[in-house]
């Protein structure tokens, strides 16, 4: 029982049914230590911004990208959400995936899938799948925003 509890983010639930969720160590790491969060966008100059979600149900995701215009790759990917543990971990991982190894090509970044992010997180509970789509949808909107601004 003790061992099981180690895999649960203590006291953290998403939804109203008070269920606990089993998360991988990678999910926990990204939830407790999210990468690339932008806490205040006031002085942040982005090349593209994407916002998705519904304020009515509390799931909102904003993504800001900076683009290396010579290589057409993502040099910075910042984000902020009013989402749950899965949304935070998924978007944190996504921000790492698109900026690692010199930055992902924007065309490939637009094709990033929830499956790809979840695979890197070593899985997510199925009932939390929907939380993992907000980030890459917002990323895609941010890249489209950049492309519109450029052309």
């Amino acid at each position: 029982m003790k061992k099981e509890n180690k895999n649960i983010i203590d006291g953290y639930t998403c939804g109203s049914d008070n269920e606990s969720w089993i998360y991988s160590d990678i999910v926990k790491d990204h939830f407790f230590h999210p990468r690339n969060i932008l806490e205040n966008e006031k002085d942040y100059i982005a090349d593209g911004i994407g916002i998705v979600g519904s304020p009515a149900c509390g799931d909102m995701m904003a993504v800001w990208v900076k683009i290396n215009k010579e290589k057409n790759t993502i040099s910075e990917c910042k984000w902020r959400t009013f989402g749950c543990a899965s949304a935070i971990a998924s978007t944190s991982m996504m921000s790492v995936m698109v900026t690692e190894k010199g930055g992902m090509d924007t065309e490939n970044a637009k094709k990033l899938t929830a499956e790809s992010i979840i695979d890197r997180l070593d899985g997510l509970p199925e009932r939390k799948y929907h939380c993992s789509v907000l980030g890459h949808h917002a990323l895609r909107e941010a890249i489209i925003d950049y492309e519109k601004n450029e052309h």
């Binding site: 094709k111 990033l112 499956e115 199925e126």
Partner: peptide
């Protein structure tokens, strides 16, 4: 379904299909 799409995605990727050529939509 989430499980169906995940299995197909992994199966294609493990058999050499680049993940950027695989597009997914799951219902939940």
């Amino acid at each position: 379904s989430i499980g169906f799409v995940k299995d197909m995605w992994k199966g294609l990727k493990n058999n050499g299909i680049p993940e950027f050529n695989i597009y997914t939509e799951s219902f939940y």
